[in-house]
Every structure is written in C-alpha cells, then in structure tokens.
C-alpha cells in the first residue's frame, strides 16, 4: 500500500562508502605518525568528520531523507557546538588577564 516506497540506495554506494571509510581509517593512523605540530589533531578531526558525514549521509540515508530529518540532525549538531563554543569562551580566555594563553583557570596548572 505504501505509495512512496523507500528510496533504495544501490549497493555500490554502500561499497564505495565502506571503502572510503577503510581508506580514511588507514590514512588517519598514518597521518598521526607524521609530526605536524598542533595540526595533527586538526587533521585527525577533519578525517573523523568526513568519515562521520559519510556514515550519516549514506549509511543512515540522511542524504535521501526529508527536510525534517536533516533539520533534526543539524539542530543536534548546532546544540553540541553551542555547548563546546560557549564553554570554550571561558576555558580559552581564563588566562588572558594574566597575559597567557594557557588554560590557567584549571587548578593544578
């Protein structure tokens, strides 16, 4: 009776996403062995975000889903960013009055 059946994603899409995820995993381990200074963590997170997006978009079908589903995902991620960003306004500037960029507010530093 379902008059608009589920969007059937071709199997080759899944295989392609799977291979990409495998490659990125190897890549992220390899990247960690090179000294990029503070950019190691940036690169690691960029790769993780790409991997996560692939899973969300294709394995979880968000790419083919309704606007509402997309909105829910975006709302969740935005709230998470609010939590991170505004907590960091504190953590990253606590030392500023003492003229340091270290996170001096944390006890023990």
């Amino acid at each position: 009776m379902s008059n608009h059946p589920d969007h059937i994603v071709p199997v080759r899409v899944y295989i392609f996403v799977f291979l990409a995820l495998m490659v990125f995993t190897v890549l992220t381990v390899y990247a960690a062995t090179i000294d990029l200074g503070r950019y190691n963590i940036v690169l690691a997170l960029v790769i993780a975000c790409i991997k996560a997006s692939l899973v969300i978009m294709f394995f979880m079908h968000v790419y083919y889903s309704s606007k509402l589903t997309k909105a829910i995902v975006i709302a969740g991620l935005c709230t998470l960013m609010i939590l991170f960003f505004f907590t960091l306004t504190d953590l990253a500037t606590r030392g500023a009055l003492q003229g340091t960029t270290d996170w001096v507010g944390v006890p023990g530093r």
Binding site: I82, F86, T89, D90, A92, T93, R94, A96, L97, G105
Partner: peptide, 18 residues
C-alpha cells in the same frame, strides 16, 4: 535559553571575558 547559562557563573572562576 541555550546561550546564557554562564550568568550563573559570574562569581565562580569563570573568565571575565566569557
């Protein structure tokens, strides 16, 4: 409501900039 919580922390050791 999600972006104002720090006003409960004014006299904790929260950064004055925050």
């Amino acid at each position: 409501g999600f972006i104002v919580w720090g006003h409960h922390l004014f006299v904790s050791s929260q950064s004055v900039y925050a």
